[in-house]
Design a protein around this nucleic acid. Structure first.
Lengths: 157, 157
DNA sequence: AGTGTCAGGTTGATACGTCAAGCAACGGGT
DNA sequence: ACCCGTTGCTTGACGTATCAACCTGACACT
């Protein structure tokens, strides 16, 4: 035993990142839950829906935007519909029903977004400052690119 | 509607980070699951256990290290015990039972750690390179500190 | 029209996380 | 010696995520 006592610099930095991500996430999530009675999943769906002018879009579009499994989205929409945040509506092609933001959902997201944004700024954006933030984001973009390449390689097997 | 079309630079960078974190996480998790048949939670518990010389430690210590709710840990240990990765053992003080790594658990973690580390390097450490990694980690540390301060303020209310 | 195929959606089973309540064992005061 | 409070762990119920199987309506080809 004991290789983990000999953690290199790099691995300790990795752990720092992991810690940060975990705490930041849970903090934002708890805030959202307490203040707005929305789970992170609720929030994400509602945000996507506001990206349509009509407060309504095909379910598949939400699925693409969130990158969720369709079954997860389906369950999520069922629960949100039960709470009156959204409703399913049939479109012209009955295979692909739409989701629509209800007034209640609209009110909820309009309360939540500013608070959430403020929190993100206080805990992240303002802490880093403009230059470091840019560097950070560039790093994230690079990692994302590496991930994509890696995934391509995996799929081509 | 439409404020989100006017996302500032900062908010787009925040989204980049979120995307990166999500993808990186799910990639590592899937790899661990496929190659080693371990969930992220399994992995974390096993790693903590290897940090003891005796392959065994009080449950409370694992709880402290992982920062999990005790009930979550309890459920997790039950499932891991069912799969033979760990076992509960009574210590001198019967209030505080220990968890011990079984041989099977030991084998599992010894296979998983190098693979996981390799993946972390390929997707993260090596992508950034030493200097950018250091900057990144410093940024994470700063955000963590901001989080702690914020939490203190919340608790003192 | 009839049949096949397929994309998109739903459903049910199972695993995991969280919350609240319960349980058990040590330690101090009497 | 007894009771009681505290502390750590477990349990059960519920909400959520994932996987696999299934359903459905449109389209193409015959």
């Amino acid at each position: 035993m004991g290789w983990e006592q000999e953690l290199g610099e790099a691995d300790r930095m990795w752990r720092t990142y992991i810690e940060m991500a975990k705490h930041l996430n849970s903090h934002l999530q708890q805030h959202l839950q307490r203040e707005c009675d929305l789970s992170a999943a609720d929030f994400e769906v509602l945000v996507r829906l506001t990206e349509s002018e009509r407060r309504e879009m095909p379910i598949a579009e939400v699925a693409a935007a969130t990158q969720w499994e369709k079954s997860r989205l389906s369950h999520q929409l069922t629960r949100m519909a039960q709470r009156g945040l959204v409703e399913r509506v049939d479109s012209d092609d009955r295979r692909y029903p739409d989701v629509r933001l209800t007034d209640k959902g609209y009110a909820a997201i309009n309360k939540a977004v500013p608070e959430h944004t403020e929190m993100v700024h206080a805990l992240f954006v303002d802490v880093l400052g403009p230059e470091r933030l840019a560097g950070f984001a560039q790093a994230c973009a690079d990692v994302l690119r590496a991930l994509d390449e890696h995934r391509e390689r995996d799929c081509s097997l």
